[in-house]
Amino acid sequence: MVESSTGGYPIPITVEFTGGLELLFGNERKHKVVLPAQLEDGSPPNISYLLGYLVDNLMQDQRKDMFIMEDSVRPGVLVLINDADWELEGEDAYELQAGDTIVFVSTLHGG
């Protein structure tokens, strides 16, 4: 891996969508994403940055509010950081590490 001019190695992570959210992302559940080691302001990328990155780069459906509302995930979507509720890990301030798996789950209601 090449060290970038901003310092540090890029951060490869896995992003998964389930519960119907995959339909907003080209009907693909699993995506490999590589994030820069540092953002322009020098800070490391966190979940908050990832949300914007996904909307700008990976989301194909135009209905952004099916995924993001008020700068966070919309109600009814759980964010899982390495198989734990993001609320156990610091929510959107969690700083991403190489190899992390971030899963977005939309709740189902059928029965």
């Binding site: 119907g20 509010d65 099916m66 509302m69 919309r74 109600p75 009814g76 979507v77 759980l78 509720d85 939309s106 709740t107 209601h109 059928g110 029965g111």
Partner: peptide, 25 residues
């Protein structure tokens, strides 16, 4: 505790609209 706010109503899909495989449910 898990879902303090309900999902937007237009994001809720029923089995009648979205479909369901019997053995899944």
């Amino acid at each position: 505790c898990v879902f303090p706010k309900p999902p937007p109503a237009d994001s809720v899909v029923s089995c009648a609209d979205g479909g369901i495989i019997g053995p899944v449910v």
